[in-house]
Design a protein around this nucleic acid. Structure first.
Lengths: 193, 193
DNA sequence: CATTTTGTAGCACAGTCGTGCCAGAACCCG
DNA sequence: CGGGTTCTGGCACGACTGTGCTACAAAATG
């Protein structure tokens, strides 16, 4: 085959997506125009369109990449010494406990609210929502098998996680990693009797 | 003083704000332009500017009005027969259990994420955040006075509520009023021992 | 009645938007 | 080397943006 190029085109698309993320964090999703993203990525607007034919494609790709990153992190978690530890590790990957993951959460929140009025993004959002719901179901089953209020406990855990993410994005000074950790600790302790 | 006019100017501003809400629900906050809101309110763009000098003022007013409505509902709740019932009534006013309150939550979510990059809206959001945090503190104190993990329990309750609101907005078919009610029931039961 | 205030509509300006299109540069392959 | 593909930048179009400004109608006030 061919020798690997200096810059893999798919990598280039990913670096443009990273530019989208930076613009989103700085100016919100409204600030994302073909021109602002191109400038952030060090390209011309016309050149950017060579990688993404339309803005809709650019946004969908950038959003999908966020979902992929989270999924990859969660999938990489191996089984721990006991269920509580394993569950705790999974939740730690979902929460924005460090600046990088908080940035991720900020971008995800922006995309997820736009999905409210954008059918293309909505499909991506719903798929991630379903996956996370299933993940929370697994966590509940691992900690409290055959729980008499299984459905409510799944939604309770999932809502708690999403609420913590929301708070960490909006008020990082209030929802600190320490506080979020304490909240999760208490919840898991109660869940496992 | 003067006889009340046919249309109170402040009422007119509120009806324009309602037009903003409708546009937000239909097209998102990005769809809110002076012209779209004017058309939705049955005015000309030039006439709208007689009530709101700038778009920023229009947005801030429309957002503030959402916060005011929630606050008014919560303040109207009288003491119930027992703490659990009272707390439950307060939470029920915060959750989008009917279409009207879900619409409210949708609009609030849109404004609150824009507040992430708009200092003027951010002040409004932070004030509401603080008020709700204080309210959750009161709820925890009412159910479990001098709880050994008070701070964590406050954040846990607040995150749970915001997570439920988020889910109700994004997936109203999944986060049904019944399921949310069951989740809150379980949480309050655990909180009061 | 006349006058002032209040409300309404519309136009114009300068800017940004997404996208279509095209002239070259850079690169790879034979 | 030539020829084809990939990449890059720039221009242009029509649409939409917030806001300043003006002319006119309606209502309130004297």
């Amino acid at each position: 085959m061919t020798v690997p190029k200096v810059v893999d085109p798919e990598e280039r698309r990913a670096s443009v997506a990273a530019a989208v993320w930076r613009v989103v964090r700085r100016s919100g999703l409204d600030g994302v125009s073909v021109r602002t993203v191109a400038a952030e990525a060090g390209l011309s607007a016309g050149s950017l369109r060579h990688y993404f034919a339309t803005q809709a494609e650019l946004l969908a790709f950038a959003m999908q990449l966020v979902a992929d990153r989270v999924r990859a992190r969660v999938d990489a978690i191996g089984p721990g010494p006991d269920p509580v530890t394993t569950v705790r590790r999974v939740i730690d990957e979902l929460l924005p406990l460090d600046p990088e993951r908080r940035a991720e959460a900020e971008v995800w929140l922006a995309f997820t609210t736009r999905a409210q009025v954008d059918p293309a993004l909505r499909a991506l959002r719903d798929a991630s929502y379903d996956a996370l719901e299933g993940l929370c179901a697994d966590l509940v089953d691992a900690l409290a098998p055959e729980h008499p209020h299984r459905a409510a406990e799944i939604e309770r855990l999932y809502s708690l996680i999403d609420g913590l993410v929301l708070h960490a994005v909006m008020r990082p000074d209030r929802a600190t990693p320490e506080l979020m950790g304490a909240v999760v600790d208490r919840h898991l302790a109660e869940l496992g009797q």
